[in-house]
Design a protein around this nucleic acid. Structure first.
Length: 764
DNA sequence: GGGCGTTGCGTTTTT
DNA sequence: CGCAACGCCC
């Protein structure tokens, strides 16, 4: 479908009213259709695995627009991950037939809350340009606070406090509301006190952490009824994806908004709630009908993904959980193959069996792309990878350390942040001595002391002190040189593109050279990542746009370069599907994980069982579950029992495969073939396995991401028009040059900004 | 400030 | 066992 550029969703919608039968409803089953068409009042869509959840969500939005009951900017649609948000935008675009620039309130909880907070920052003691701290910055800050309070850092590590604060924030608790008993769990009663000190410090830095983004937005709504009313009025229809993953703060936030029109539609699956350990509250979905009176509950039970045996096995397993709303999934794809179950002597044999089965499937013309190995813990990946590397089987690891979490990427971004926003103390601390400039703790002490005494930023403190005798000559020279460099880069920013400047900063600061000199095996990869970062930056118009993006979007896509088997944890597999799925490591202690049982008892067990359910339901056609009698853990051989989940599988839907070496350490290398067509397929696979490309662990790239960001060329604004900018506030456009606007701001004066950063004033 | 030895820990991950 | 974080010494 091609659309005239600039045509908005609302125009589309208005036009569509005259269309007789909306074709987007075609092919929906009864329940899906009901979920799409029940627009008024609270709706809970219980969407089982593979029942077309995303389709319902996106079609519902298309329906709202098509019916003309609300405009795109009156629809709030929240997701948990950026990936999910992008996918939704893409699919709505396909349905409605135009770009999604017109869905300003579709995004992650965090992205939407940041947007709201930037508009009303002063009301929660922030300034609109506040920075968002990542976990590293947060820990660094907490360390300083713990130290300042004279608490033993050893006994009370900052990361423990960080996770404690996180849990409080997830529950919507501000320092004053932390229950006394819990406040005493850290540093002999200093918990709440430290929380308060930390929040105070954040305000001084004009910063928020991830938890605050939600909490402050919630506080904004709670304490400023006029603001709440404004948003209740704005959001005529609200949609929430993966509702089972919401935490208390998100629930409270949503409930406040839903008190407006009550048109809130939550989509989720209680059986797939696997993030309890990071604050998700299954109870939110279980309690929905009580929380939202008059709610309609619609169950999607028609599964379009898996064959009968797989679905039956998964359903029987999850039926052992008591805390669930209950669904009966059915499929009409046919019975298909039974779930395979295999016991192995040890994890090495388990890995061999998996690779043998993969090769057999490959001979039968199945693509590696359609196969995945899903593990409970990443420590299991080692054995699998070792085997794949040995036989040269191409594979890719999904998840793992994300691009923006890599040290070199964070360092590089810290440089850019300091150059463009030199008040950013935490980023400054990160790079002041990276690469080594002889600026250790001792040399910098006067800088810290002066900054604290005068309540100024570290950069300003450093700039003052280099003109005095406070610093040792070596440190003074070193800092002077660095400050001159910052000045130099700031000057250059006006003369060249942000990508060129980024390269210059990395080179002139000695950062690139630092990794070039480094002889560790990771160093070349890190240099590649830096190149990748700069290539990615090119997709943004300005450095500021880029930096705003990275502070929220910590997500990467892996490129598709050739067919590979996917290897990932069960957690990262949620939402994905594969023809063939391997589920190794179903042993007591590993799955269900001992720690989960110890820490959360029955609740923990049920969450583990949901994880098992998620695993099985990823499979469209084939699922193989396996367990090993012996496993090397922490360098110790351990013997374990098959998982209790195996006993819970229904015998009728499972085939038990006898492993030749099972029960004895005979290490039979004879492959266990499952298919009788081995000889027929032999010529298809005439090349020996070592002729294939050597498998390499994939370095995650961000190419996938880059594709999605479009550059805006044609201006949607006119000279003289009044616009709003998140940092500078309101102003009038004086000049337009391509996508760059010169705006005379009412408060900030004349600035040159990029078009994508301004918006039309609100007309509510 | 850097290098090296010791210690402790070891599930899942997004924003 | 393998790694990361910390502390001590030069």
């Amino acid at each position: 479908m091609s659309q005239t550029a600039g045509q908005s969703l609302s125009q589309m919608a208005t036009k569509a009213i005259n269309r007789p039968v909306p074709d987007y409803l075609d092919g929906l089953n009864g329940e899906q259709r009901e979920a799409v068409e029940t627009l008024e009042g609270p709706v809970l869509v219980l969407a089982g695995a593979g029942t077309g959840k995303t389709r319902v969500l996106t079609t519902r939005i298309a329906h709202i627009l098509n019916e003309g009951v609300a405009s795109s900017w009156n629809i709030l649609a929240v997701t948990f991950t950026n990936k999910a948000a992008f996918e939704m935008k893409e699919r709505i675009g396909q349905l409605v037939g135009c770009t999604v620039e017109g869905m300003p309130w579709l995004g992650t909880f965090h992205a939407i809350c940041v947007k709201i907070l930037r508009r009303h920052a002063e009301l929660v003691d922030l300034k609109s340009g506040f920075t968002i701290l990542d976990t590293d910055d947060q820990i660094r800050l907490l360390k300083q606070i713990i130290k300042a309070e004279n608490i033993d850092e050893k006994r009370w590590p900052a990361r423990h406090l960080a996770s404690l604060l996180d849990r409080w924030k997830n529950r919507g608790l501000v320092p004053s509301k932390v229950p006394a008993g819990e406040a005493y769990t850290f540093a002999n009663g200093k918990g709440a006190e430290l929380y308060e000190a930390y929040q105070k410090r954040l305000k001084e830095l004009n910063a928020v952490d991830f938890g605050d983004i939600l909490l402050e937005c919630l506080r904004l709504f709670q304490e400023h009824n006029d603001v709440l009313k404004e948003y209740q009025n704005r959001f005529r229809y609200m949609l929430v994806d993966e509702y089972q993953d919401t935490n208390v703060a998100q629930y409270l936030w949503l409930r406040l908004l839903a008190q407006g029109t009550h048109n809130v539609c939550c989509v989720g699956d209680d059986d797939q709630s696997i993030y309890g350990w990071r604050g998700a509250e299954v109870d939110n979905i279980l309690r929905f009908e009580k929380d939202f009176p008059g709610a309609k509950v619609i169950r999607l039970e028609q599964n379009y993904r898996s064959t009968g045996h797989i679905l039956a096995a998964a359903s029987a397993l999850i039926a052992h959980n008591s805390e669930r709303l209950g669904k009966t999934l059915h499929t009409n794809i046919g019975d298909g193959d039974k779930v395979l179950l295999r016991g192995c002597w040890d994890h090495e044999e388990e890995a061999r069996n998996i690779s043998d089965q993969i090769e057999q499937l490959q001979r039968e013309q199945h693509s590696f792309e359609d196969m995945a190995v899903l593990v409970r813990a990443s420590s299991q990946m080692r054995a699998i990878e070792d085997r794949f590397v040995t036989i040269g089987l191409p594979y890719r690891v999904i998840g793992g350390p994300r691009f923006y979490e890599r040290m070199e990427i964070k360092d590089a971004i810290a440089y850019f942040e300091v150059v463009f926003n030199n008040a950013n103390d935490l980023k400054f601390e990160r790079i002041i001595n990276t690469p080594k400039r002889g600026l250790g703790e001792a040399s910098l002490r006067p800088v810290y002391e002066y900054a604290r005494a005068k309540s100024i930023s570290l950069v300003d403190s450093a700039r003052t002190l280099i003109n005095t005798e406070e610093l040792r000559p070596a440190a003074r020279n070193s800092i002077t040189k660095l400050m001159d460099q910052f000045d130099h880069w700031q000057q250059m920013a006006k003369m060249m593109s942000h990508t060129e400047l980024a390269q210059i900063i990395l080179d002139e600061s000695g950062y690139t050279a630092m990794w070039q000199k480094d002889k560790s095996p990771q160093a070349p990869g890190r240099l590649d990542n830096l190149k990748e970062l700069i290539r990615f930056m090119d997709e943004f118009d300005t450095m500021a746009a880029f930096l705003e993006h990275v502070s929220l979007v910590m997500d990467t896509d892996s490129g598709n370069d050739g067919e590979r088997v996917s290897l990932m944890t069960l957690h990262s597999a949620k939402g994905l599907e594969f023809d063939t799925v391997f589920l190794p490591g179903w042993e007591e202690g590993l799955f269900p994980h001992q720690r989960s049982l110890d820490e959360s008892g029955q609740t923990g067990l049920e969450e583990e069982r949901r994880l098992a359910y998620v695993g099985i339901t990823r499979a469209k056609k084939r699922a193989t579950i396996s367990f090993a009698q012996n496993r090397l853990t922490h360098g110790q051989w351990q013997t374990s029992m098959p998982s209790r989940f195996i006993d819970e599988l229904p015998a009728d839907h499972v085939d038990v495969m006898e492993s030749l070496s099972f029960g004895s350490p005979s290490h039979s290398l004879k492959p266990q073939r499952m298919s009788s067509r081995e000889t027929v397929a032999e010529d298809i696979y005439s090349e020996p396995r070592w002729n294939r490309h050597k498998a390499q662990r994939k370095i995650t790239t961000i190419e996938g991401k880059a594709r999605r960001i479009k550059k805006v060329h044609k201006s949607a604004y006119e000279t003289g028009e009044r616009v709003f900018h998140q940092k500078f506030g309101y102003g009038h456009i004086t000049t337009i040059e391509g996508d760059k606007l010169t705006i005379d701001f009412e408060k900030a004066g004349e600035k040159r900004v990029v078009e994508s950063f301004v918006e039309k004033p609100q007309s509510t």
